[in-house]
Write a protein that binds this DNA or RNA. Sequence first.
DNA 1: CTGAAAGCGCTAACAA
DNA 2: TTGTTAGCGCTTTCAG
Lengths: 334, 334
Amino acid sequence: MANVSIKDVAREAGVSIATVSRVFNKQGTVKRANKIRVEAVIKKLKFRPNVSAQRLAARHNNAVGLVIPRYSDIFHSFYALQILQGVGLAVERLKLDLLLHITNGNTFLNVSAVEGVIFSDIIGNEEQVDNVLQMDCPCVIMNYLTKDLPVSCVAIDNVNAARKATEYLIKLGHKRIATITGELKSQVAIDRLDGYIETLEKNKIEKKNNYVKYGDFGRDSAIRATKELIKLKTPPTAIFAASDEMAVGATQVAFESGINVPRGLSIIGFDDNPLALNFSPVSITTMRQPLHKMAMVATETLYDLITKKAKGNKKIILPCELIERNSCASPANR
Amino acid sequence: MANVSIKDVAREAGVSIATVSRVFNKQGTVKRANKIRVEAVIKKLKFRPNVSAQRLAARHNNAVGLVIPRYSDIFHSFYALQILQGVGLAVERLKLDLLLHITNGNTFLNVSAVEGVIFSDIIGNEEQVDNVLQMDCPCVIMNYLTKDLPVSCVAIDNVNAARKATEYLIKLGHKRIATITGELKSQVAIDRLDGYIETLEKNKIEKKNNYVKYGDFGRDSAIRATKELIKLKTPPTAIFAASDEMAVGATQVAFESGINVPRGLSIIGFDDNPLALNFSPVSITTMRQPLHKMAMVATETLYDLITKKAKGNKKIILPCELIERNSCASPANR
DNA sequence: CTGAAAGCGCTAACAA
DNA sequence: TTGTTAGCGCTTTCAG
């Protein structure tokens, strides 16, 4: 592999390795003629600096790690891909290398390969964060807001997004609004539920316990929940689902039960998963999370940390956006 | 960051750095007592070897690069994610680091950071392959079979898969079978078309030119194509679409035109994109590509190359699998 | 079984 | 403007 070293270039060009280094890194001053000669040799010999040596000598390596917890269902996969793309984009712009780490949480993260690490989420791998922090390694966490740890976090404003979703339903004229929550072990799900409850209270709509169904972000849980919901004596006229996957499940049940969406039942999801758009014959109204943006902001935040442009304890919260499609309407029996 | 070095450990344990190295890497022989002492110090000081130094000294770095061409539509994204997961899995099992490179094809790939590279596909970045090869860097290409270059390739048997799809339709009793091709600049699309044509011939079914519609893997192209198809005086009773995205588009058009799928029109897709499963009210029959497997095989192939267990010019072809769902049936007017 | 020492290829003082 | 040199932290002979 990369077998021509800086020495070879120096010899061939008749200068010292220091000069070659200077030319290559465009710093320091080099006589014009020498510079041209060295550049020619570099090109001729196809010299590429050995990254490990550079890193060792310069004590920094220009690489960041991205940790993605391992999970496989489509909902999370969509999430992971969006994150990856966002980070990938930012990293390229900032001329950073990206070391990817898909992990089940137990594996050790050797921080000396990178200058900083981004956690795409925290799911059973809090320990890794501790590790990284203890090594004094710059670090930012996405999608998980922690007040306890002195880490920078970039997350979505789930409470407010849920509020907006519920309010949208209320504005449409709904009063019987149910929700299907996500897995309540996750902060995200709790926040979305909170936003829903808050909004009901604020609008003086009684919160009925049997309108709150506990799901897990997955379709099956929503199918079960929706079946129960439509069997109620006074079934809801609208459902706020904490994920598009679940919104799709709910829509499916409605169809199968001969309930028209949105005329008989309005359904709003969360994520802006392409799934929600493609689901036919209605496309599902949803809250879009700026995942791309979150990933880019996280990367930039890390970059600032690494380059000492900023200190390490920012909490950044990004807003969601309502995407109106055609799974919501005013209730028929208003 | 990782500031405790092998020297610190050596001093603290009262041995030389060579001994520490031996203990840490579990090679060579060390007196039991020393070993235990060193291990204790390593733990106490939380010593983690500096990766760059290891790489520099050992002249290898245990990392592989994964190059993913940049594209953004859902079809390819699904592909990219599957590949990523597969490679991620394999890489973890093989204790390799993964350096991710999402590229538009122009960026330079510095090979000294890795021991080998995997191209997840070749789309406008043939030059990078040349680069890597010229550096004598082990390399495997996915989803693209090249006979010219001395590289290992892992790809899908698209011809045969298309054959199986078409045959399935024929067995169902169809004689009027149309196809919507993918972007014919790609080998994949050509192969799928070839498989279709071959099978028609083999079964003595006349190939009608107006049954072959040129698409680009995207939904819109399929919508256009399907509209033309159903307007024909003798419209097809079945369509083989070269992607699920297109199968979905075709199904959509059928619905909107009041054509029942599968009774009035059978549609088979390609990919096993979750899209095809979720598309309601029919879920779409498709050819599943073993993308995960392809990625894993590619990674293992690269590993063998790196570890010199194998030489560099294998061409591996993986079969597809028919996933029967409910978008295909015998033609109504048999 | 262990330590000394020679690099790995590069960067960054420092001196010239 | 340049070259010399001292590391960076580790692996790996090679003597002991």
